[in-house]
Every structure is written in C-alpha cells, then in structure tokens.
Design a protein around this nucleic acid. Structure first.
Lengths: 201, 201
DNA sequence: TCAATAATGTGACAAATGTCATAGAAACAT
DNA sequence: ATGTTTCTATGACATTTGTCACATTATTGA
C-alpha cells in the first residue's frame, strides 16, 4: 500500500483528487493540506512515500516544500502538480530534485500513472511542459534588469525603484532603456506584457 | 436519475469531477467538454437536467453558454463553477438567470449539495462570493475611463490610445488623469494594479 | 425642469520617461 | 591573459506623461 500526501490549495480539486486516489486499491491518501507550511510539517512527520504538491499555495509554495524535502533528506518522492509551465518553476523543480512534474492539463489517469512510474523509480516530466519550455523565448534580461522589471511591475517610478534596489536614478533608467530595447518595446507596460507572456516573471 | 453535463477546461478537474459525480447513485454525467462551444452544442442536443459550467474556457465562456441556454429557453439548470469571485462575472451570471454560482474554493461535497438544492428549485450563491462582492471596492470609473484603462493595459501610449478610441490626445490624457485621481495612484501601472486587484478589468 | 455627471476639447506647464554617448570597475568565459 | 558582458554612473536631450484651468455639449437622475 502506497502512502500519499496531497497539497493543493483549491479545495474542489483537493477533495476530488483525495477521494479519487483513495479509490485506487494500492494507494492510500494519508493527509491533505491547502497550504505549504502545513504540508511540509505533516510530510516531515508522516513521511509518505509520495507527496503531490501544487506550486501556488499560501505561506509556502510547493517548490519551497520540495526544496526542503530534498535538503532534509526525507525519503518522500515529490510530484509537482501545477497549471503553469513556467521556465523558472521548471528550473527550480529540477534543482529540488523532484521526481515528477505534471500539468493540471492532464486527466486524472495520467496522475495515477505518474504516481506508479515514480514509485517505480522513474523521473517523469509532462511532455507538454518540456515542449513549452523549449518553445518559450529565452529570457534575454540580466539579473539586474529582471530585478528592475519586477519593481516596475509594482508601479514604482524610477526614483522609487532606485531606492529599492540601491542604485542611482539614472542607472535604473538605463536598465529600463536596455530592457525596452531587448524586448523590442517602447514603454514599461509593453515590456511587462512581453515578460509576462514569456513567463519571465 | 439526474443527467449532468460538465464543462471545465482544466482536464484534471474535469475528469476528477466527472468520475466523482458519476459515483453518486442519483447522478449521471452524460457528457463533458473542455471548451464552451462544444459544451453549448452538446447541451442543446442532449438537454441535461443540470449543466455545470466553468467560466474561463476557450472559444466561449461559461457565462456566454449560460446566456445562450437562457435565451434559447432550454430547460437545463445552470451551475457556474469558478475560481473567481468577480463582480462583473456575478452580474452577468445573475442576468443569465443561472441557478447556482459556486467557487472552486469549496469541497466537492458542496458541489453535490448544490446540485441537489438546485434540482430542488432553489437558487444558490456561494456565501463567500456574496461577501467578496460586497466588500470589493465599487468601480468608480466611467465607461470611457474604463475603456481607456483597457487600452492602457495593452501598453499603448496616449497618442495610440487616442487613435484607437477616436479621441484627441489631450482628452485621453485627461481621462488618464481622472483615472489616477479616482484610484489614488500616480502612474498607469499603479492604476492597472488597483483595477486588477479589484477585478474592474 | 434643474442640477449633477459624463463626454469632449484646448493650452500651458512641471515632472517623469526614455535615449544616447561615454566611462570605469568587476565578473566571467575561453 | 584577454576579450566580452555586466554593473554602475553622469549629463544632456527629446518625448511622454500627468496636472490644471477652463469651456461646450449631451445625458440623466431626482
């Protein structure tokens, strides 16, 4: 009997999956949570064989939980289950040594199948995910530029951004100029739109 | 035996709910779709007693489908099932005479319960939804201002917006000035953030 | 019908934004 | 060891953005 822990913040999906997985005769859902913090502490305590983690959850993201599980050397195998095929998420997941990464864009059968494959020792990544990652525009922005772009998103003006990131106003504006030229845009909002479309932020 | 049609574009939830509802011994899921267009034509053809509709779906939104069902006088009762407690969605749903509006932030039991209540002739709205709607800032923007704000979102500058909405550059800037003052902000991006937070756009 | 609001416009001004040239230091890759 | 990229900065400039005062015409709710 395989023990499973499920962390998913959308109640409807959480309860639906918990019930469904429980119906499989070799799977046993030993706990569920709707936030990352609860999930982590219960996983540490209960040591399930498999943890299914959503990414976007309150308090602690599924990726943070995965990272902790990895660092603490807990034997639980992790499957990330998410809506988003973001490059950043994917990279973080790989770093955290997750055993599976499945998109919610798949039927439940696929989840069950993935659980079995992961139990079998395989590492499984959704093919659509891999395709998306490959076809996404590679982020041409430097660390600093990305940092500035994130500040832009909050609606700050150049001076405020400068204060936040400890740079001069002029430097910030130079970075923005560079961001615009790299994204082929001519205003902050356009640049944000491009970055969001390509999942850079 | 109650016939149910389910339209939900996220495969994982779609399949999970279809299976779960099928397990109830008085419910029979006679079809599912992952886009609004398919859902509408199948609902017209199969005339289920209940249609469960997600809002954000490709091709046709769940609200569009609900509206059509209402206009065509199809006897199917509609339950909207969505993540979002947006005022605009809610208003549209009321206009389309839907019989229920449930947030995905509820467990599956709640969905089953709602189905039974709706069958029973009741009209059910998620209490959290009602609370959210009441507590949301009322949109202080005029039609024109909102129109301009949507243009802002695309990243256009004042002149481009002026062209799109057939106004003078100065007028557009006046509208923007008014938007900023009404939202208590001092830049386009801040205004967008506020509008998005309050689900005005 | 009357007052308030909305829609539209102009002109003028201050501030913010974006561009460009230029340059030194640090980090990194080959 | 050397060349490239990144990080940081300044000054000058043109353009855009946002504010304000003011004015005319619909529209509309009371």
């Amino acid at each position: 009997m395989t023990t499973i822990y499920l962390a998913e913040d959308q109640e409807m999906l959480n309860t639906a999956l918990a019930t469904l997985l429980g119906l499989e005769d070799d799977l046993n859902v030993i706990g569920t949570a709707t936030d990352g913090q609860t999930a982590l502490s219960e996983i540490i305590q209960k040591k399930p064989q498999i943890a299914i983690l959503d990414i976007e959850m309150p308090k602690l993201s599924g990726l943070d939980v995965a990272e902790q599980i990895n660092l603490l050397n807990i034997p639980t195998k992790v499957i990330i289950l998410t809506t988003f095929a973001r490059a950043i998420y994917f990279e973080q997941a790989v770093k955290a040594n997750v055993n599976g990464y499945l998109l919610k864009d798949n039927p439940t059968d696929q989840l069950v199948k993935t659980i079995h494959e992961v139990l079998d020792g395989q590492t499984i990544f959704s093919p659509e995910l891999v395709t998306t990652i490959i076809s996404a525009e590679k982020n041409p922005l430097t660390k600093r530029e990305l940092e500035v772009l994130k500040e832009i998103k909050t609606g700050k003006n150049s001076k405020e951004i400068a204060k936040s990131v400890f740079l001069s106003d002029g430097t910030v504006r130079n970075y923005i100029s560079s961001i615009l030229s790299k994204t082929g845009t001519s205003s902050r909002i356009e640049a944000l739109n491009i970055a969001e479309k390509n999942k850079w932020i």
